[in-house]
Nucleic acid binder design. Sequence first.
DNA 1: CGAGATTTGTGCGTATGTATT
DNA 2: AAATACATACGCACAAATCTC
Lengths: 134, 134
Amino acid sequence: MINPPPEVAGYRQLAALIRAEITSGRLQPGQKLPSEASLQQQYGLARMTVRAAVRLLRAEGLAEHDRGHGVIVREPPRRELLTPPAGAVIAARMPTAEECIELDMPEGVPVFEVSTGGDVSLYPTDRWQMCWPG
Amino acid sequence: MINPPPEVAGYRQLAALIRAEITSGRLQPGQKLPSEASLQQQYGLARMTVRAAVRLLRAEGLAEHDRGHGVIVREPPRRELLTPPAGAVIAARMPTAEECIELDMPEGVPVFEVSTGGDVSLYPTDRWQMCWPG
DNA sequence: CGAGATTTGTGCGTATGTATT
DNA sequence: AAATACATACGCACAAATCTC
């Protein structure tokens, strides 16, 4: 190769640029990111590199894909208060694709797994939080 | 088998096959998955398709990449009991890449975000769970 | 309503770099 | 040193969903 590999992968650098746009507020929730094609042109990258960057942002819960439309900056989560029953065990994990559909939630958002006895309930963590009693 | 219907994306079908191997116990924790190259040959898929399938499994916390070695089936998490201070607010989200390094955790695992006053602590959800008091 | 443009989703091929065995 | 395996990155094509006119 003519150019030595960058210290940080290109898609991570691009993700950092876009992340800064979001966290600084220059890109507001609900707004569309530049299209993959325009990001390719602007930075001279392959589409795969651009998509890898956006995938990182989605994994962090910052953005959301909308097929045929674009990539949207996600709303900062407004979380309601969840109060599990006494003795319930609360874990958290990533949902499966089927659970995402069933719970009507985007991929890339964890779920609370509340187990009481033999019963298990799931709560998307972008809609729920808990306040420890006492 | 995987080829004909694009009803479900090929990489999701392949992920489902491997996921069944894991959940059924035919692939034990610590064992290596077949290499990307052998999965390509076995199912006649492109490497990108195989990688997308493995990425899904990793996002579900089922597998873990070990660069230069292979893809490993993850141990089912053994979670210790976490007891937040009274009044603490508990949320959960995906960590950034920096937080993954700082907490010495693999990517694809959510974190508990425990806020008490102005203080925020993070706990990897594959190592911690909570039991609701009362 | 339809037709076309836009945008993301999926998939294949290839090449090179880096880490481990 | 060599083989193996994953990481990154370029190219291309077509499908599916959405939007605009």
